[in-house]
């Protein structure tokens, strides 16, 4: 599998570290809504198909990337820097909601 880092170009997956479900959104830091925190910390989407994921180019430029990957075919349809704001290219999930 190759991931095309926006900075480094296509690199082998062995240079990347998976950093989890990219659909999670962190509650406001001062929030005391335990259900929201619980969803953020523990709930993960596990779709068969397109999935928003965070990968770090750990063995390269170390940027975190927002990747849309098909979990069935490993096909990657989009990659952008995670720090660049904007909705992921694929459906976002409300915290606490089960898929």
């Amino acid at each position: 599998m190759l991931i095309t880092c926006p900075y480094c170009g296509p690199r082998d997956v062995s240079e990347f570290a998976y950093q989890g479900d990219g659909n999670r959104s962190r509650p406001d830091p001062s929030s005391t809504d335990l259900a929201a925190w619980n969803a953020y910390v523990y709930d993960r989407l596990n779709p068969a198909g397109a999935h928003n994921e965070i990968w770090q180019h750990a063995g390269g430029c170390r940027a975190h990337l927002a990747v849309v990957r098909d979990t069935l075919s490993h096909e990657i349809s989009s990659v952008r820097f995670a720090r660049e704001k904007g909705a992921p290219a694929h459906g976002r999930r409300k915290s606490g909601a089960k898929p």
Binding site: C8, R11, E15, H57, A58, G59, G60, C61, R62
Partner: peptide, 8 residues
């Protein structure tokens, strides 16, 4: 030539 990369 001249360019750089990060890898491991």
């Amino acid at each position: 030539q001249g360019s750089g990369i990060s890898t491991a």
